[in-house]
Simulated assay, not measured.
Amino acid sequence: MNEIRVDAVYQASSEPTVGRMCDIETALASTPLTTTVDEFQVVLAFPRFEGQVPAQGYAGWLGDDYAPVGLSPAYFTAHTVFDVDSSVEEAGVQEALKAAVAAIRFAAARLSDAIRVEQPSVGMVGEIPKVLSLTAMDTARGLELRVPEPLNPGYGMVRGLPVLTIERASQALRDGVVPARALLSQARHLTQSTNSPQPGMAILLAAVAAETHAKELFKSFRPPGSTPSLRSLQEKHGTAVDLYGPIAKAVIGRSLEDSDPTLWVELGGLFSARNKMAHRLKTPTHPDARRLVVAGMRAIEWLG
């Protein structure tokens, strides 16, 4: 058996500057944390604090110089050790390394989330922290191994989006970006163009965009005193997806349920996922969120 150790160093805050760095209690600086991700045991640790400031690995501290109550770490480390049968070929070793790196990233993101929940100024919960170094060693043979993963994952490539037109540019300069379109754009970014996808937040933004866009559009078709009023239609048809079904039929003379039954079902899935997030904090998977956000975009385009 060959013993392999993977080590990573993560930036503790989104910005490595004093005033934007996180603060931890001094006890945590001397206490490694261990968690299990899949079959890997991951050990995370902040720079060791010897009881005196200034301390190596820390940019600042809180409280008395002789008895600080908080420290501002510049980084934290994460490592895991696992065995690979010596008969396994290179491709198998690389697959094991990929799995180990994924486990380390998962644990590092969880530790980062713990920081950001307490101190939102240092970054957004759910973002993968920046990797400063990533190495792998076959400790039995003293050999450094090639890590099959990039230091920091790149952004997803997205092609085929519409070009900015004179009309859209002029409209934005004159009136600002339409709020629903802005929310939908943010939702699509969070599922398509970031190495730290936020499926739950994306679902909330896309659902709000689809619902408010329909309501604002229908208001222009239903001036005060119209019969039936938009309010009475919403009271009769109480779900958000009904805005694109019977309510749309009554206001603009067409229904997504009739025009595109498949998209109608997907849009219903978007609002259902939003409700699960809002009422049960049940986060959808990234693939589901990406699909449902696109459904929201297509439904808005269908309305015009």
Rank of each mutant, 00 (worst) to 15 (best):
T35N: 03
E149W: 01
P129I: 01
L33R: 09
R146S: 04
A136D: 01
T139Y: 01
M137Q: 02
T77D: 07
Q41N: 10
L151I: 02
F49Y: 12
V53Y: 04
L33Y: 13
V42T: 06
S86R: 07
L44G: 01
F82M: 02
E50K: 08
D65Q: 11
P150A: 11
E144H: 05
P68D: 08
F49M: 02
G57K: 09
L145R: 00
L71I: 08
E89D: 15
P150D: 04
A91E: 15
Y58T: 03
A78M: 07
D38G: 04
V42L: 04
P150C: 10
S112V: 04
Q41L: 08
A103S: 15
L145Y: 00
P148C: 05
Q119G: 06
P150V: 12
V43I: 11
L132Q: 05
G51I: 12
A67H: 10
A102H: 06
T139G: 02
V131N: 06
I128Q: 13
V125Y: 03
G142F: 00
T77G: 05
A45N: 09
A140G: 03
G126W: 00
F106R: 13
E118G: 00
V117Y: 11
V43R: 15
S133Q: 08
G63Y: 15
V81I: 14
L111K: 07
E39Y: 12
V81C: 06
G92Y: 02
K98Q: 15
Q119A: 07
L97H: 07
L143P: 00
S86H: 04
Q119D: 09
D113W: 05
D113M: 12
G60E: 07
M137P: 00
L143M: 05
A45M: 10
V84C: 04
L33Q: 11
Y75S: 10
T36P: 06
F40T: 02
A136H: 01
Y66G: 15
A103G: 11
V122S: 10
R48Q: 10
Q94P: 07
T135I: 09
E127K: 03
F49W: 05
S72P: 02
R105K: 15
F106E: 15
F40V: 03
D65C: 09
L145W: 00
S87Q: 08
A102I: 03
P54Y: 13
R116L: 11
L62F: 08
G142Q: 01
V93W: 03
Y58I: 02
R141W: 09
G70F: 06
A45K: 12
I115H: 12
Q94K: 14
V101L: 12
V69K: 09
D83F: 04
R116T: 09
R141S: 05
P148L: 11
A109S: 15
G126M: 00
M137D: 02
Q94D: 14
V88K: 14
L33A: 14
A96G: 03
A140H: 04
G92P: 06
E90T: 13
V117A: 03
P32C: 08
G60A: 14
P47C: 04
G51Y: 11
